[in-house]
């Protein structure tokens, strides 16, 4: 599940994940993503932080409180590179954090760290 209000980022992440053999669904805001997750819990969420309707922090809190959502690996993918913001996202329940811009190798590495892809 890729949740980002940027169509370009959704497309880039989708291409990277699909090239790894993963099936990808996406959403343009946290709320739409949350509804989709509650219908069919994904194996991974790549999550933007600043989004309309429901931001990354709101999504993460709701996901962690949802049945089956407690343990889903979440990689926050944001243009914020402030260490305090990164630490706060991890504290809020994100498993990993990618700073934009990024490339396929960086995302591969994060998935490998989470044991999703080797």
């Amino acid at each position: 599940m890729v949740i980002d209000d940027s169509r370009v980022i959704r497309m880039v992440v989708r291409r990277i994940l699909e090239a790894m053999g993963l099936a990808v669904v996406d959403a343009a805001d946290g709320y739409t993503g949350l509804i989709a997750c509650r219908e069919a819990m994904p194996d991974l969420v790549v999550l933007d932080w600043n989004m309309p309707v429901m931001d990354g922090g709101g999504f993460l809190a709701e996901l962690r409180a949802s049945p089956g959502g407690e343990g889903v690996p979440v990689i926050v993918c944001s243009s914020h590179n402030d260490p305090a913001r990164i630490a706060a996202a991890l504290e809020a329940g994100a498993n990993e954090y990618v700073m934009k811009p990024f490339d396929a190798d960086i995302l591969h590495g994060k998935l490998a760290q989470l044991g999703i892809f080797r």
Binding site: N81, P83, I86, A87, L90, V98, D103, I106
Partner: peptide
Amino acid sequence: THFEIQRGLPARLMVRHFIRQED
């Protein structure tokens, strides 16, 4: 660099052991 620091380094360790200087 922004790209080098993200290659393989978990974010948790990045914010604990590295200090950001601009990019």
